[in-house]
Design a protein around this nucleic acid. Structure first.
Lengths: 346, 346
DNA sequence: TTGAAAGCGGTACCAC
DNA sequence: GTGGTACCGCTTTCAA
């Protein structure tokens, strides 16, 4: 019966022939923009339906010079934070009548791959671009902003040519620090991700260090690296770090995921959190942000980041590359069971 | 200086004018397909670079009738399983020289929204389609398979017109069941998601029930629903379910996420896992699949699912809708600390 | 080696 | 209300 060969998708010309009208009429009928006999319109619609017609976005976009599409570049969908962000972007875009096409990396640190993904999006002539990647630098992006309104979401970006929406790391760090110092911690470890691995997380670490200092506490910064046991090593270093009689009683991690690794590391040493060391995270996103785990963390306002990013992109059709807006949104402190007052030193 | 106005993206005509050649030459030069004076080519490349030229995929795809693009429809990126799957698809597609554009839902049960996302992809004239959604039914998809090779990834799909790649739920259920019965469990709860909420998870539950029966154990099926406390209620029901002297000593959850909810529910009742009830999950994907949590679960072979899905899509350019392949891949049992022998009934 | 012209699938403007 | 036609940016004959 149905010969299974691949069939070329029908065009408006096919519909026109089938319905016995010109392609102009079909176009108008399908666009539902009036000026077409009601009966004709019905017939066209019927034929289109029967043929399984799907408009060709390329042809349409080519002539209309509009695509109603926003491109989203996500670095690593494997990370739930980016997954949530992507969903938020998608939702807002839909509300405003735009489609979203996303390209994403596998999480590997492939800069060239990210550049290629960027090209893909650009070649689709998206009307706006949201970059969600801790890796791609401003220099990679700026050459194109003059053609497409571009916003960096999820990380602070100082470049004046690029808009950005992100969680205010400084404020977040301050909230976490104030929680820790309020509990009585004085010497606090900071696990810092090097800048080359993630701009966001690096800045986060810097902010934590600064805030600790301002709060009169003593930050003990340990640099992480790409090795899988990096966090474990850092925790090892911190548990050994004792300044005179004073030990490190808390550690601030760059992400919730890192907190998990830290807890494991403590357990491996026969220690526990918050018993021997309080731990704080960052992100506050499901599924790690669950009462069961009870992480103390800073929840990023992901839905709002997504919303504002889309709005920023759509509301500045002609970018003024010299003072793009930078929105630092406040996160929320989530107090869990990984922080407690420091134990009397034993 | 640089007036910040949005500038229309340059076309090959702009390059042609600037380089003093015809657009034909520019096209050939950029395509690097020879037949162009070396010096001319160099000049064209230089101008293109200087102008920040990015090819127009629409125009190119329109004439070439090829897009080198695979469309991926992801139901809910918020779920790490889909995130990993998307990454796997992306990776394989890249290996084979294809780009991937993804559209995704926000996780809400919006069928119309998914249909729209499908249209978006189709209108982009993708050369292949991978559907990763527990929601979209075969009937929604089949009308288009004759135009685009389509594969459903991540869920079993019986429709003969649709290829599918998924984790063999039956086998997975068998592995989990054999683990439980091996530990000595006889009456085992099955938290089952209704079909309307997720085809995959529903089938999973059915498979568990069947396997338990075949193993000579007694399944106690509790149907979940969309309420947030659904799992908690189910756990409540199960802890109360006592047949004569025999209590339910283990419960099989449809996902790792559900296990978390179950553990919380037990804790709320003053009980624990596996002390009072063993729990098994399904998925085995980061970040929930971590030694710290130690869930006993069945790990889906996500990378392989992604790989095979792409291969299936690309290697059957003319689909034979009447016996599309269905690949059930074997998952791996991951034994954690949420399962143990049943306690002597107290 | 290069340029002119046709045409991909649509939209929009024009007469009729 | 309808059909003809130009054109969007690009690739691809085909001549020159």
């Amino acid at each position: 019966m149905t010969e299974g060969r691949q069939v070329k998708a029908p065009t408006i010309i096919d519909i026109a022939r089938e319905a016995g009208v010109s392609k102009s009429v079909v176009s108008r009928a399908l666009l539902a923009q009036g000026g077409v006999n009601k009966e004709t319109r019905r017939r066209v619609a019927e034929v289109a339906e029967r043929l399984g017609y799907v408009k060709n976005a390329m042809a349409q976009g080519l002539v209309a010079q509009r695509t109603h599409t926003i491109g989203v570049l996500v670095r690593n969908v494997t990370n739930p934070f980016y997954g949530h962000l992507q969903a938020a972007l998608e939702e807002r875009a839909a509300q405003r009548g735009y489609r979203v096409v996303a390209t994403t990396g596998t999480g590997a640190f492939e800069l060239t791959q990210e550049r290629k993904a960027l090209q893909t999006l650009l070649s689709l002539r998206v009307e706006g671009l949201v970059v969600c990647s801790g890796l791609l630098s401003a220099a990679d992006i700026t050459p194109f902003v003059q053609h497409v309104p571009t916003v960096v979401a999820g990380r602070p970006e100082r470049d004046p040519a690029l808009g950005s929406v992100y969680c205010d790391e400084q404020d977040g760090a301050a909230q976490l620090v104030s929680h820790l110092t309020g509990l009585g911690h004085r010497r606090v470890g900071v696990l810092r991700v090097p800048r080359r691995l993630s701009i966001t997380q690096y800045e986060r670490g810097t902010a934590m260090e600064r805030e600790l200092r301002e709060a009169g506490a003593e930050p003990v910064v340990v640099e992480l690296d790409e090795r899988p046991d990096s966090v474990a090593r850092a925790i090892g270093t911190l548990t050994a770090a004792r300044d005179g009689a004073e030990a490190v009683t808390a550690a601030m991690c760059p992400s919730d995921h890192a907190v998990l690794r830290a807890v494991e590391a403590l357990q491996a040493l026969g220690l526990s959190a918050p018993g021997n060391m309080s731990l704080t995270g960052f992100d506050g996103v499901a599924p790690l942000s669950t009462p069961l785990l009870g992480l103390t963390t800073l929840r990023q306002p992901v839905p709002e980041i997504g919303r504002r990013a889309i709005d920023l992109v759509l509301d500045q059709p002609d970018a003024r590359p010299d003072d793009a807006p930078h929105l630092g949104l406040q996160g929320t402190l989530v107090i869990g069971r990984t922080t407690a007052p420091p134990h009397p030193r034993g």
